[in-house]
């Protein structure tokens, strides 16, 4: 297959989506856990691709803001991996549809770069090897920025619905409102995301453990890793869980088990049929399980409010970040 990319399969999915809109709705679920004993981790849950379920046992152990597992990727690394890998896969798919042969594609994605433009949260540099037609590549990059679901989610403000409940008591469930100033004091993070073959990519967070990205086998991949949407949602869940643990410890002096789950829908009519109104992630939700061990008088509301306000991934998703993508043709370095 050209670029090991299953063009015929994506064509079939596109026509299926055209015929039956129910097949366009891809629903992802992820969880994150901040444990006093096992540190910070994130995992994917069952996903639904139209009417077909995919269940993969994939997760990642993370560095947390209190210094646990320093070699692990950070929550922001997961989010950046999700954004960049979605962009690269979109570019690869679009290029494969045009019958282009790529020798290599790599995207460096940086958050809070010290030498970045003022006000710019994210910048991307895309290196493409094997294709020399610059106008064509510029057109493809434009398409990538417009139709990549995660890049669109980064570029435009995407609402996130937050709620919480105590333990497993459904009667305690309530909505949370986040009123926070834009984060300007960003902790820099960067990932170099490199295409390997087909829908497989690797992400190298600065000096930290490598992450593998792939589509599930229900969607032409081989289950080699979580997919880009799942990385972005794991990043959100993990960052909120990390902030909850950090803020709670600061305010109470106690460590608790924080569990956070996220979900979102990717409407494939955006990517495949160029329906711009639905390219970005839809219905993003984030649910916090408040530890039963946390006493009400310790200021639960204050912890939740501060943690959500200080989550940089939450800020990245919910605000407009119109950072551009610079393109380099030919092998870098």
């Amino acid at each position: 297959m050209r670029n090991s990319f299953y063009t015929a399969g994506f064509s079939e999915v596109m026509h299926e989506v055209k015929q039956d809109p129910r097949e366009a709705s891809y629903i992802y679920t992820t969880t994150a856990c901040n444990s006093p004993h096992r540190g910070l981790s994130a995992a994917i849950g069952p996903a639904l691709f139209g009417t077909v379920k995919s269940v993969r046992a994939l997760g990642v152990q993370l560095a947390d803001s209190t210094g646990g597992d320093p070699d692990g990727p950070s929550p922001m690394d997961l989010a950046l991996t999700g954004i960049a890998s979605c962009g690269v896969t979109t570019l690869l798919g679009g290029g494969s549809a045009r019958e282009l042969i790529f020798d290599g594609i790599e995207m460096l994605i940086e958050y809070g770069a010290p030498d970045g433009e003022p006000g710019q949260a994210v910048r991307c540099r895309l290196s493409v090897d094997g294709v020399t037609d610059e106008p064509l590549m510029n057109e493809l990059v434009e398409q990538m920025q417009t139709y990549s679901p995660n890049m669109a989610t980064m570029i435009r403000p995407v609402p996130i619905s937050f709620d919480c409940l105590v333990g497993t008591d459904e009667s305690t469930r309530r909505q949370l409102t986040v009123e926070a100033e834009p984060i300007t004091d960003r902790r820099p993070a960067a990932c170099r995301v490199r295409w390997v073959s087909g829908t497989q990519l690797v992400s190298y967070p600065n000096g930290r453990r490598m992450l593998r990205v792939d589509q599930p086998k229900q969607l032409t991949g081989v289950d080699w890793g979580p997919n880009p949407q799942e990385y972005l949602l794991m990043g959100l869940a993990a960052d909120v869980a990390d902030q909850l643990g950090r803020v709670a410890y600061r305010l109470t002096g106690e460590r608790h088990l924080w569990e956070v789950s996220t979900s979102a829908c990717e409407d494939m009519r955006g990517l495949l049929l160029k329906e711009r109104d639905v390219v970005f992630l839809q219905g993003v939700t984030c649910r916090v399980v408040v530890p039963e061990t946390l006493r009400a008088e310790t200021g639960v509301e204050k912890i939740l409010t501060a943690a959500l306000a200080q989550s940089e991934v939450r800020d990245l998703v919910s605000r407009s970040n119109p950072g551009g993508v610079s393109l380099v043709l030919g092998r870098e370095g």
Binding site: F10, S11, E12, M14, G93, A97, Y147, K274
Partner: peptide, 17 residues
């Protein structure tokens, strides 16, 4: 019918299942 050499995006592909 599924062979398409003039596609510019996924929605130009012509192969159906």
């Amino acid at each position: 019918e599924g062979r398409s050499s003039s596609a510019k995006w996924f929605d130009d592909l012509t192969r159906v299942r």
